[in-house]
Amino acid sequence: MSGLDIRNEWHALTSDNIAALPAQLGVYEIADEAGTTLKIGYAGGHSLFGMRSVLEEELAEHGEVTFRHEFTHGYLTRWNELLMVHHASHGELPPGNHDHNQPLGTLSPGTQNTPQQNGAN
């Protein structure tokens, strides 16, 4: 578990829980009952109803597994970060991301202390 993971709690991937979400952009992670990550995805600018639309698609594909999410307008950079964090700790991408076709960077999140929050430019 890295401090860079999605911080929100896990929820059951059900139609009711999805319908309760705002139609905003962001990133999500879905996992099976054992807690194994199946996929890390994002709701981007082309998603019809943001997080709701993409999670409905995941529900149709995976059934009632679990998910956690994070709303952000920086969904692509956050998604890349989550993929790198996962790869750093597991040595591979989740099965649902095996078709990832862009170069993925390398993070060493385990070595980090407190992230810088100052306004240096």
């Binding site: 970060e81 390398t106 993070l107 060493s108 070595t111 980090q112 810088q116």
Partner: peptide, 28 residues
């Protein structure tokens, strides 16, 4: 060489820029 022991990319720095993110790196 970035595979030199002690060269660590700590995190992605999220900004207004939606792609080509920046990073914070540490030399130990």
């Amino acid at each position: 060489d970035t595979d030199t022991p002690g060269f660590n990319v700590l995190r992605v720095v999220h900004t207004l820029r939606s792609t080509h993110y920046a990073t914070e790196i540490q030399f130990d």
